[in-house]
């Protein structure tokens, strides 16, 4: 009988562990996160270039695609932002509404109380280079007035996610190492490195950079004009020069066309900017915050020939008919 009692106790203990453990975990998790204020839990995922409100668990980091957080607040609402990172160190920054910058280390939790005073649509960013998809790590924080919040259809139209696109896998053609045509390589490098997240779809520009003196990031479709190239003929000859890998400075003594020296000065300035980055951006309001979008250095990702192929691609797509 005594032996049977021990056995019964043993069974009971094992059952308590097997059934009780998940129950206790869920119960504690529920009570621990209980707060009167709304908690907005944002997790940075560098591999997908998103701040997400989805739960990021160990099991699904590899398989799941996370939805970018499109945060909707009501003016005057007291909320708590809980930041964490699933992989590397990020910085969350929404400068226009005074949230951040908050350095978010992997696995750590940062609870930041916040009450929005301004209304409108604001952009948040990650401002430390966190990997291949860093340029994609941005989204909207929409702050509604209480009247707007009460009108559901109006709220839905205002709060629609307007940030595009999301980070994607590298282009196979590039990673396969095949010999791509020079101009196509330039186009794919532009896409693959996510340059369009700042320079706009197809390099059309128009991406807003808060407190930047020119308001939006420069486009690239008019690069041929910025390089002081006179006409299509000059453009074609320059593309050929860039493709053959000729040292451009050696052509200064014997320029291939009349305006070559002006082109060369501009080319030098732009290619250096791509290679070394431009960390300082002129502010619209010199006493206010730094614009969050700055040109990073691409020297680790792009060779000189890569940079030339991107420049050549944008020279090639310039529409000379509209000149």
């Amino acid at each position: 009988m005594k032996k049977n009692i021990k056995e019964i106790i043993a069974w009971a203990l094992v059952l308590v562990i097997l059934v009780g453990t998940p129950i206790i975990i869920m119960y504690y998790s529920h009570t621990n996160n209980h707060t009167q204020k709304r908690m907005i839990h944002l997790t940075g995922v560098a591999s997908q270039g998103v701040w997400t409100e989805d739960e990021v668990e160990a099991a699904d980091l590899t398989f799941k695609t996370f939805k970018r957080a499109n945060i909707v607040l009501t003016q005057g609402e007291e909320v708590i932002f809980r930041f964490t990172s699933a992989d590397v160190t990020h910085t969350f920054y929404a400068p226009e509404i005074g949230l951040g910058p908050i350095v978010v280390e992997a696995g750590h939790y940062y609870d930041i109380p916040f009450t929005p005073k301004l209304t409108g649509k604001f952009t948040y960013y990650c401002t430390v280079f966190c990997g291949h998809c860093h340029n994609f790590m941005r989204g909207n924080i929409v702050v509604l007035t209480s009247e707007q919040a009460a009108n559901r259809s109006l709220a839905a139209s205002i709060t629609m996610d307007t940030i595009r696109p999301t980070c994607c896998a590298p282009y196979r053609e590039l990673t396969d190492g095949t010999n791509l045509p020079f101009l196509k390589r330039g186009k794919l490098l532009f896409l693959d490195n996510g340059c369009y997240t700042c320079h706009g779809d197809s390099g059309k520009g128009g991406v807003y950079n808060p407190n930047y003196v020119n308001r939006t990031i420069p486009d690239l479709i008019t690069l041929a004009k910025k390089l002081k190239i006179g006409d299509k003929q000059e453009a074609d000859s320059l593309i050929k020069i860039l493709e053959t890998g000729t040292e451009l400075d050696k052509l200064n003594d014997n320029p291939p066309f009349a305006s070559y020296c002006r082109f060369y000065a501009q080319y030098n300035s732009i290619s250096t900017k791509i290679k070394d980055g431009a960390p300082i951006v002129l502010k619209a309001d010199s006493l206010s915050f730094n614009p969050p979008l700055t040109m990073p250095s691409w020297s680790a990702n792009l060779s000189k020939r890569d940079i030339n192929s991107i420049i050549a691609y944008f020279i090639s797509i310039y529409n000379w008919d509209n000149d």
Binding site: I25, V56, E57, A59, A86, G107, H108
Partner: peptide, 10 residues
């Protein structure tokens, strides 16, 4: 390992 943080040291 399944439902916890994907960050190893946490």
């Amino acid at each position: 390992g399944i439902i916890g943080s994907p960050v190893g040291n946490r």
